[in-house]
């Protein structure tokens, strides 16, 4: 756009800036002069393909909302159903014990005994190569996991004096068996696995201990066969 031939008249400005007014006007005029017109709207039509695309989108939206609305109920969280979930009894043998063992270990034991099974010196004893883990019987290990362990003890000749929490209320018999089997057969450990039924038996036997942890001495006083 061409600048207008004559400069615009002086606009109102702050009075205390009067002395500068002239310069200011010159500048502002220059700025305003190069300014283009205020924006306007053109009238190009909307392309047909766009309308088609939007129609398709709306159809999809309607379908999706109709299909996955959970019946608009407050307690339906699964978008694929419209009623309360049905408790599915787990088919027997559906969990892979190896996988369950490793996952339980990562979630429950690795924070202390570490992913490597090496523990942390002075704090958490190692499970890899441990003389508590690599034993013929497994009753003692089941006891440790169910009720935890506290007080002075030795692992491979190294002293530890710390506590491990009880897991009785947190993990199932399946998980105890799986995690101990995993522990006994990883990082070079080569001890027999732990059957689920034995865990059940020991859990019942030690019921009255509730959540009270063992001490190393108490465990040693309990014969492995029980």
């Amino acid at each position: 756009m061409n600048p207008p031939s004559n400069p615009p008249p002086a606009p109102k400005l702050d009075p205390h800036e009067d002395h500068e007014l002239h310069d200011v006007m010159q500048i502002h005029t220059a700025i305003l002069r190069r300014e283009k017109a205020e924006p306007q709207e053109g009238l190009e039509p909307m392309p047909i393909w766009l309308a088609a695309l939007f129609g398709a989108l709306l159809l999809w939206g309607g379908y999706y909302l109709g299909r996955y609305n959970g019946g608009f109920k407050a307690l339906v969280f699964d978008e694929k159903s419209s009623g309360l979930p049905i408790m599915a009894a787990k088919p027997p043998g559906s969990v892979d014990m190896v996988v369950l063992g490793k996952r339980t270990y990562t979630a429950m034991c690795a924070p202390c005994h570490q992913e490597t099974g090496l523990g942390l010196p002075g704090q958490f004893p190692p499970l890899a190569g441990s003389d508590w883990v690599n034993t013929a019987g497994h009753a003692r290990l089941v006891r440790i996991v169910l009720n935890g362990l506290t007080g002075p003890m030795e692992v491979n000749g190294q002293p530890f004096n710390n506590s491990m929490p009880p897991w009785r209320d947190s993990i199932t018999d399946e998980q105890v068996a799986a995690v101990l089997t995993y522990v006994r057969q990883s990082w070079g450990n080569k001890a027999p696995g732990v059957p689920i039924d034995d865990v059940k038996v020991i859990r019942d036997k030690t019921k009255e201990r509730a959540n009270q942890p063992w001490t190393a001495d108490l465990l040693k006083a309990t014969p492995e066969s029980e």
């Binding site: 924070p111 704090q123 506590s163 929490p165 897991w167 947190s170």
Partner: peptide, 21 residues
């Protein structure tokens, strides 16, 4: 609370997570 019930562990971890992790 279920996965890690040990108070001592949490205290060490909060003091410096590098100790345990």
């Amino acid at each position: 609370g279920q996965r890690q019930p040990s108070v001592d562990w949490h205290l060490s971890h909060l003091y410096d997570p590098q100790i345990t992790s």
